[in-house]
Amino acid sequence: MQEYALDACRARQHGEPPVPAPGAHDWQMIRELRGHLHCRAALAGRPARGRLRGALLRRLRPNR
């Protein structure tokens, strides 16, 4: 928290946009990590799950 306060103060002094608050992008990071792990699993030959699998199935079977 102290590092955030120092970064925010420094950004304000230099006229830069404020830094995001701690925890502001946690869910986005988790989604990106999950997508990365699914991609690695697919490249390794393991079955894809979740959104990636659904997107692939929709591409392969558009009539369903």
Rank of each mutant, 00 (worst) to 15 (best):
A55H: 06
R10C: 04
P18F: 00
L52D: 05
A8Q: 14
P62L: 05
A42R: 15
A11P: 02
L52I: 07
Y4K: 11
G15R: 08
A42K: 11
G23H: 07
P22G: 04
R53W: 04
A8M: 11
E16Y: 07
M1K: 10
E16C: 10
L60D: 13
A21R: 13
R61M: 07
A55G: 01
R12W: 06
H36A: 07
E3G: 04
G15E: 07
N63P: 01
A5E: 15
A41M: 12
L57Y: 02
V19T: 11
L57G: 03
H38W: 06
C9H: 03
G50V: 03
A41P: 06
R12P: 00
A8S: 14
L6R: 15
P62N: 05
P47Q: 06
R61V: 07
L43C: 14
M29L: 12
A8V: 13
H36N: 04
D26P: 00
Q13E: 12
G35A: 15
I30V: 15
R46N: 12
R61Y: 10
L57C: 07
P18W: 00
E16L: 15
A55F: 01
L43Q: 15
I30H: 07
A48H: 02
E3W: 05
I30G: 00
H38A: 13
M29I: 11
G45C: 07
P22C: 01
P62E: 08
M29G: 08
L37A: 10
R49V: 08
R49W: 06
A11L: 03
H36V: 04
L43P: 00
G54Q: 12
R34Y: 05
R61N: 09
A11K: 08
R12N: 08
R40P: 00
E3L: 12
R40T: 07
L37G: 01
R58L: 09
G23F: 05
L56I: 09
L56G: 01
H25Q: 04
P22R: 08
L52W: 01
W27R: 14
Q28E: 14
Q13A: 14
G15L: 04
A44M: 03
D7G: 01
R64S: 06
Q28R: 12
E32D: 15
R34T: 10
P18R: 11
V19F: 02
R12C: 05
A11S: 13
I30R: 14
A24K: 09
P62D: 02
R53G: 00
G35D: 15
L37I: 07
P22D: 08
C9E: 11
A21M: 06
L33W: 01
G50K: 05
